[in-house]
């Protein structure tokens, strides 16, 4: 579904990603792990065309998207849940959600279905986004991406700043999307959170892929986990 091949991404003249490759199959969850500053967010920004790789290729559903405009990449079916949620603070929840609504080649999600998953949304619709709690904002951000009918969701540190109960809810949603055939890349510093839902894992270290393989292999090999993720696990 998504194939990232040897991308080099820069901020100005500073190279941040060095030949990063990874791939995600339909309905699969890939955990993208690594320390703060390893380049995880930059991988997502590269996929979305927000920070364009200078070299390498990114293919989605067989077509190269590496030179496409960001809105075209989104319309191809890639949804984004940024680490800072990025809701429009002065708009109501309903309007923030409606901004995300679009059709793609993938399964469409109606507002009713999305509210079915995130039932508290019902009562938040007329609230301005800036008045929401962190957990509520995360819920709106995920719902907004889902209303865009994605085939692939990019979650950037979905557990960040959330209470454990809400983190469980978020993981539940990722599992539900997976069951519905939607693939995900879950960026996490908290490895255990991501390993709970992931099929495969890519570990980044200073902008390079340090390890990739089955999530189960990493989860069961305490030594490997400690070596790759150090204090993060």
């Amino acid at each position: 579904m998504l194939d990232v091949t040897a991308i080099d991404t820069f901020y100005g003249e500073t190279q941040t990603l060095f030949g990063v490759s990874l791939s995600v199959q339909a309905g699969q969850v890939l955990a993208l792990l690594g320390a703060n500053g390893a380049g995880k967010t930059t991988v997502l920004r590269s996929i979305l065309g927000l920070t364009r790789p200078r070299r390498g290729d990114i293919r989605f559903e067989g077509r190269s998207i590496v030179t496409r405009a960001t809105h075209e990449i989104a319309r191809a079916g890639i949804g984004w849940v940024p680490d800072d949620r990025r809701l429009c603070p002065t708009l109501t929840v309903a309007k923030n959600l409606s901004l995300g609504e679009k059709r793609t080649a993938f399964r469409a999600w109606s507002m009713t279905e999305v509210i079915d998953i995130f039932s508290p949304l019902k009562y938040l619709m007329s609230r301005e986004a800036e008045t929401l709690s962190g957990g509520e904002m995360q819920m709106v951000a995920i719902a907004r991406a889902l209303l865009g009918s994605p085939g692939l969701m990019l979650f950037d540190e979905p557990s960040q700043g959330l209470a454990p109960k809400i983190v469980d809810d978020v993981l539940g949603v990722i599992r539900r999307l997976k069951a519905a055939g939607i693939a995900s890349i879950v960026v996490e510093q908290n490895a255990d959170v991501a390993l709970g839902v992931a099929d495969r894992v890519v570990v980044l270290l200073h902008g390079q892929v340090a390890w990739s393989g089955e999530a189960a292999a990493l989860a069961t090999d305490a030594g490997l986990k400690r070596r790759l993720l150090g204090g993060l696990a």
């Binding site: 960001t70 809105h71 940024p82 990025r86 429009c88 901004l99 995300g100 907004r144």
Partner: peptide, 14 residues
Amino acid sequence: KAGAHDSEIVQALG
């Protein structure tokens, strides 16, 4: 309004 606040996210929403 959303674009004035954050031009990246509106593009990432399509």
